[in-house]
Design a protein around this nucleic acid. Structure first.
Lengths: 218, 218
DNA sequence: CCAATCTGTCACCGATCGGTGATTAGCAAG
DNA sequence: CTTGCTAATCACCGATCGGTGACAGATTGG
């Protein structure tokens, strides 16, 4: 990538062109990977057929042929997404004994917070969900929330929320807070005046979150 | 240049063209209004020079002349935004006596929730904030958070948060939850499995929110 | 061997984008 | 009326977008 004479145009053709092998499965995977990578790194703003084709190093025609266009490609991403929770979030209690519903929710909150912070693709998708209402996004959103709900159900086991508390609504609030705070931190390192840069900042955020959980569930 | 026999052109002009008056101030206002309207109704996705010019019914050149381009126009929106809080959110206690910090935060939460639900422009801007990191958005974000912080400070009066609680972090969580839940409801009528459609749904959400506030601040 | 099929590439379309120079049209002072 | 200023429009540019039809090269079955 560093020719001695930095002329504007390269006069000779690239000698070794990395001859593209004829392999449909590999190409499909390359397209899917490029799409996920692009979405994670660049966001949904400039996410389009041309960009994905460029990223995958192939012609956009193949995206139409193999995935039926962007819609099909996004749907394929959504299918992959189903395994996100099981991949990125531990499915056990981490050796802890979750005796109360409060224990459970505190742990779920921390796991979800860390997992979301660590996954740029998922962050972009969440941001997409609250920014657009297309069919594409609805599919993604559905796949994500279904996987998430399944995970919570699995972790919950036989623990029941305390009487007199609308656990569904409260939990929605808690997860909403986590999602928004992680999204905000990813673009501006802060949220509502709260710095979210280094580990200590996140310690404070996590503490506040646990405080909230414990305040409701004891 | 302008032959009388313009065969391809439309033969009859639009009968009443609403003859445009030469009035710079009015045009500037029309542009600003169109920009705010477009952003509120269509979102930031298709927000651009051409769209605003179309919406304002003038040539895009005028946007460059009067606002120095989209950036300046967005900045003008941000300036307007400063008065959002004072316009849309009551600045008094609504006749209540806020005796404790918990009273205060409960009331602030409700006010902010209702105000955000009622303001599509502000919702779009919040969604924009968590989706993009351009200079434009940073300006908007700053103006918004500054106005919000000022409002909170004004309402707070001399009430101090209880010792042992990181009020800044906890409040950031609460406001994050409100923002995310309102954004989600605006595009999909739900959030994390919690329906957010009719008034009863919102009652439940508000109750959960108050529960959280009271759980932390008593 | 030929022919059909599959993978991949290329060229091109119309539409829209952001942006800019040149031009027209209304108004007021001289 | 003429002159000058300015609001407003028009015409055009290159770039990029999503989308499609035609074509080239490899693979495979007969």
């Amino acid at each position: 990538m560093a020719p001695a004479n930095a002329a504007v145009k390269i006069p000779v053709e690239m000698p070794v062109v990395e001859k593209r092998v004829r392999n449909r499965a590999a190409t499909e995977q390359a397209i899917l990977d490029a799409a996920k990578r692009l979405l994670a790194e660049e966001g949904f703003q400039n996410f389009g057929i041309n960009a994905v084709a460029r990223g995958a190093g192939c012609d956009k025609q193949l995206i139409y042929r193999y995935y039926g266009g962007l819609d099909g490609l996004v749907e394929a991403i959504g299918t992959d997404l189903g395994s996100w929770v099981t991949d990125r979030i531990p499915d056990d209690t981490g050796g802890m004994f979750l005796l109360t519903y409060g224990d459970l929710m505190e742990r779920l909150s921390m796991l979800f917070l860390d997992a979301l912070r660590a996954d740029p693709l998922m962050r972009r998708i969440v941001a997409w969900e609250v920014s657009e209402n297309s069919e594409q996004v609805r599919r993604l959103s559905e796949a994500r929330s279904k996987a998430l709900a399944g995970w919570i159900e699995r972790m919950r086991g036989s623990l029941a929320p305390p009487k007199g508390v609308d656990a569904q609504a409260v939990n929605a609030m808690i997860f909403a807070a986590i999602q928004h705070i992680v999204l905000a931190s990813a673009v501006s390192d802060q949220c509502s005046g709260l710095a979210l840069k280094n580990g200590r900042d996140w310690e404070k955020a996590a503490t506040a979150l646990k405080r909230i959980v414990r305040g409701v569930y004891g």
